[in-house]
Computed example of a mutant assay.
Amino acid sequence: MTNLPDAPFSARNRGAHRQIDLDFPITAKIGLSHLLLDLINRDFISNWTTVANELQRIARIPPIEYETSKVASYQLAKKHAQEALGVLHWDKTYDFCERLYSYLAKEIGYNQYDEYHVVTSKSEVQAFIASGLQRLFAEEELAFEFKDGLVLRRGRRHTVDITTRAQVVLGDSRLLGARKHYDKAMKFFRERTNPDYENCVKEAVCAVEAAGKALFPTAKATTLGDLAKWLGNTKEVTVPKTLAQITTAIYAYRSGGQGVGHGGAEGGAATAEVAEYVLAVCASQIIYFVDVSNPPESDVVF
């Protein structure tokens, strides 16, 4: 996976903010044009003709044949590429970013004495493109990240960190069922054009429930609510009652949230902010359950 740069100062300095969703603003497109120019100058992608034809394909504009050997034709390709990018719908622009990484990126090398030498591998070029796109997304406050060649719904830095940790913990073979639920929750949240926040919440809470049942079989819990009651009263593990109430709270929202579960309509809408909060809380709950179920061994007294 590409090691992506930290957010630039302008993004860090803004602090808490609402990210731009369902849009790829003109300023971001200008930034993308600068990245394209840099990539062409470095020979990381072929030329403006290739860029223009790919943008025309994505935008369903009839293809135009250019003669790269002629300056006027090449300049026309650059003009058409910029025009096509300017009118490209926001979701199609993200499609272009993925194609820029997967299709337009190319290896750099040369032939010498009938032997081909690689100067810059395609994977290195792709790493450079991914870094540039990630920085652009951060500078423009876009609600997405570029990861492993795909545009994904990002979430705040804390959410990304805690969900990543939870997914590592969910590698435990006992938690296969919980992992399936949490992966579904992440997929619903990260869907670019039509995120499903209601099902994101439902699957995230189901992941906590599945993890709890697997880690605490003696609780014989049927629901997460049952497990929360057991955690608050059992002496088998040490969980403060107030922390057990967090489990009760997320289960209550899963049951009563608008459109989330059991036909609930009075618990409030599952917005992007709510879904992200529940994802983070559920990740923390799973990590905590694993820690509680595996207490550190006592020191042996000699």
Rank of each mutant, 00 (worst) to 15 (best):
Y182M: 11
E139H: 04
H17M: 11
L35F: 06
R18K: 08
S33K: 13
E266Q: 12
Q245Y: 00
E115I: 03
M186C: 09
T271Y: 11
G257N: 05
K70D: 15
Q112L: 13
T222S: 15
L231N: 04
P63C: 02
L136M: 10
G149N: 02
V125F: 05
Y103H: 12
F302H: 11
G257W: 05
F128E: 12
F144I: 10
T68E: 12
R192P: 06
R156T: 14
T271C: 11
L76K: 15
E141D: 15
V301F: 14
E276R: 05
L133E: 09
L76F: 05
R60N: 15
A228T: 07
Q258N: 11
H17Q: 13
I61T: 14
L85A: 06
G225N: 01
T242D: 14
V301T: 14
L279Q: 07
T222H: 14
T49R: 09
P217F: 07
Y251Q: 13
A185R: 03
I61K: 12
L104C: 03
D43N: 09
E98C: 05
Y101G: 01
V205N: 03
V292P: 07
Q285H: 13
Q126R: 06
L152N: 03
T163H: 04
Y253W: 01
L227T: 07
D148N: 14
F188D: 15
Q285M: 13
Q167A: 07
A219F: 14
A204E: 05
M1W: 10
K220P: 02
S69C: 01
F9T: 13
V260M: 05
K213F: 07
F302S: 14
L22Y: 14
Y116A: 09
A221V: 02
K92E: 14
L104Y: 02
K202I: 07
S293H: 12
Y110C: 06
L100D: 07
